[in-house]
Amino acid sequence: MNNLTEIAKRAVEDYGFRQIALWSPDDLVEQWGLSPREAGTLKGALRDELERLPVPVEPRDYAAVTDRLNSLISGCLG
């Protein structure tokens, strides 16, 4: 699992963490040592998806949502 997929997984399962990803993404870029491309994805395509997630995501939906975000991340990072 790369940094960004781990961040995405946590943002799905933990609303508090999701808020940081949404509103203080630079803190995560610094803490997790994200590359410029990862940072761009976090603040761009991934952010748009995270903002649309329900609050909270029900545990039964974790896998499906995380899979969807992972495809998005792979798409962006190539």
Binding site: E13, D14, Y15, G16, R18, Q19, V55, P56, E58, P59
Partner: peptide, 13 residues
């Protein structure tokens, strides 16, 4: 609050 709803991890929480 949105925070409590979110971190309860389930609507039932």
């Amino acid at each position: 609050t949105p925070q409590a709803r979110g971190s309860s991890q389930s609507a039932k929480g």
